[in-house]
Nucleic acid binder design. Structure first.
Length: 518
RNA sequence: GGCAGCGUAGCUCAGCUGGUUAGAGCGCGGCACUCAUAAUGCCGAGGUCGGCGGUUCGAGCCCGCCCGCUGCUACCA
């Protein structure tokens, strides 16, 4: 990966159900990062997709009376549709049931095998059919008659099956060295600490195949087995780059700049994945970043609590851009966050409608009425004008710093700090009063405000692409001048340019009749 | 149990290598303005910085103990 390329992925979603807010959140955040990097001049490849194999898909399909492939097709489409509804700009959407992925998975398997890291053995342990999981002896509780039970209360039985294993244990030292030499490989830091602690405690070899079902990628040379979870799912990130064909035009994007994932699967991405890659002799991703979870008023979303919200419906209710803004501004990226209807409405009305929307409205409507609908005449700049402009131009640096560590909320904080400052500037300069006493000065104040709005419009595009475009449209900023290279005085608004009539940027959210609340 | 982290205004959180009257946003109270999406601006209320004890000329920031909370402690993706 050259310095100018940026490859970002979300985790691939397991589509045995409909997409939920957690999926939406990860996609929105990744999309904002991808868009930021594109606008900042990078050659971006942004990937998302679905992980469609495994027993649960088979079971869900049975329950619904569908062929499993039909279920996969239907639900994968639901995830694609969610992306559309949220404005995701992914360059590809990978499905692990695709032919290209079979090739890639079998190729990496072969690579690991060639390295001597795969062997066949008995996978044994206490298995709970209901939980579909193995449990360590220490996790079990004993009931009457010596029967043993999983933490969930489900009965367990001793199970022994043939399985291929990956020599994960062999990579402990190399992994620790990786974490030591590249401190930002895992983020945020708290996740890094956990992983280091975990690996330091020793690694066991990993069961990577099953012969108890067939819905998966066949193991090369032993079609009784399908690959189990790890190899199949993680490999998607290189499948999309054309692996194993290194002459594929996409191969240049590997290694990925960052895998954006939920905090619950950090270990798989920060331990197993690099080990698989090391084994197969493939370069390692630059970074792995685990975001937090969203809760509804502090409670986990769950069907039984009835607080599961459909992200597509939310986008319709609040607007795609405002919804994106809310989650990216309200939740420090990497930490858990809570949301509620009240919190969303509060943010939308305060930050979007009142602060930014109204700033655009109050200034641009004055321009429209008093400056012949053109970019105002810029006279000599006062120290106050210079100060606010300097702050605005300085934002790109702050945003770059924040986004380099995926601190999206800090970038937005910085932008809104300037929005607030601009409202103060506008009130202090009182162009409505200057209209009578010093029209030329009024024009300069309006020009300065419009120029700040131009910069704001450019910088909000990653998070709110439509709204950013709308604001830039109102300022007649040409399409070719909408990347971050334009965040400078060099590309400032030119006095006399004709402007369209301003339109509301962010309407206030008003409760529908007989407020349903949330 | 072990390891890691956290506990600062009603709420969500900032507080750099310890140093004058502990900060922001939201919420709340008052005032101003009327260009604007009943928007905005100004002022304010005011928290024993979880508790106790230390180190220090001086601690929210260092040390010890205690209380409370969270995460991790592998085969569910």
């Amino acid at each position: 990966m050259s310095a100018n390329r940026f490859y970002i992925t979300t985790a691939i979603s397991y589509p045995n159900g409909k997409p939920h807010l957690g999926h939406a959140y990860e996609l929105i955040a990744s999309d904002a990062i991808a868009r930021f990097m594109r606008l900042d001049g990078k050659d971006v490849f942004f990937l998302t997709g679905t992980d469609e194999h495994g027993l649960k898909m088979v079971q869900t399909a049975e329950r619904e009376g569908l062929p499993v492939r039909d279920l996969a097709d239907r639900n994968a489409q639901a995830f694609r549709d969610m992306g559309t509804a949220l404005g995701a700009s992914n360059d590809d959407f990978i499905r692990t049931t695709e032919e290209r992925h079979y090739k890639a998975s079998q190729a990496i398997w072969a690579g690991m095998q060639a390295a001597g890291d795969i062997y066949l053995a008995k996978h044994s342990g206490w298995y709970s059919v209901r939980d579909e999981a193995y449990f360590d002896e220490s996790e079990l509780t004993s009931g009457e008659g010596g029967r043993k039970f999983a933490p969930s209360g489900a009965p367990v039985e001793w199970s022994e099956v043939d399985s291929y294993f990956f020599r994960l244990s062999k990579y402990q030292d190399r992994l620790l060295e990786l974490y030591r030499s590249r401190p930002d490989f895992i983020g945020p830091e708290t996740r890094r600490n956990e992983v280091v602690s975990f690996v330091s405690g020793g690694l066991k070899d990993l069961s990577i195949s099953r012969d108890t079902f067939s819905w998966g990628v066949p193991v090369p040379g032993d079609p009784r087995h399908v690959m189990y979870v790890w190899v199949d799912a993680l490999t998607n990130y290189i499948t999309a780059c054309g692996y194993p064909d290194e002459s594929d035009p996409r191969w240049k994007y590997w290694p990925a700049s960052v895998h954006i994932i939920g905090k619950d699967i950090v270990r798989f991405h920060a331990v197993i994945w690099p080990a698989l890659l090391m084994s197969a002799g493939i370069p390692l991703p630059q970074r792995v970043f685990g975001h937090g979870f969203l809760t509804n008023r502090g409670e986990k979303m769950s069907k039984s609590l009835g607080n599961v919200l459909d992200p597509v419906e939310m986008a319709q209710q609040y607007g795609r851009d405002p919804l994106r803004y809310f989650f990216l501004r309200e939740v420090p990226f990497g930490q858990d966050g809570s949301y509620s209807h009240e919190a969303i409405v509060g943010r939308l009305n305060a930050d979007l409608a009142n602060d930014l929307g109204n700033l655009a409205q109050r200034s641009l409507s004055m321009v429209n009425k008093n400056c012949a609908g053109q970019v105002p005449t810029r006279g000599p700049l006062s120290p106050e004008d210079e100060a606010i402009l300097t702050q605005a131009y300085g934002l790109i640096g702050e945003c770059r710093t924040a986004m380099a560590d995926f601190q999206i909320h800090l970038a937005l904080n910085a932008i809104w700090r300037v929005v607030a400052e601009t409202n103060r500037y506008f009130a202090a300069q009182a162009p409505w009063a200057l209209k009578k006493t010093d029209p030329a000065r009024m024009e300069t104040v309006l020009w300065t405000t419009a120029e700040v709005l131009r910069v704001i419009g450019l910088l909000i595009q990653p998070v709110m692409p439509e709204s950013g475009a709308k604001l830039l449209d109102m300022l007649a900023v040409p399409a070719a001048r909408r990347d971050f290279a334009a965040v400078s005085a060099t590309h400032a608004l030119i006095s006399g340019t004709a402007l369209p009539e301003p339109k509301g940027l962010f309407p206030r959210y008003v409760e529908p009749e007989a407020g349903q609340g949330d």
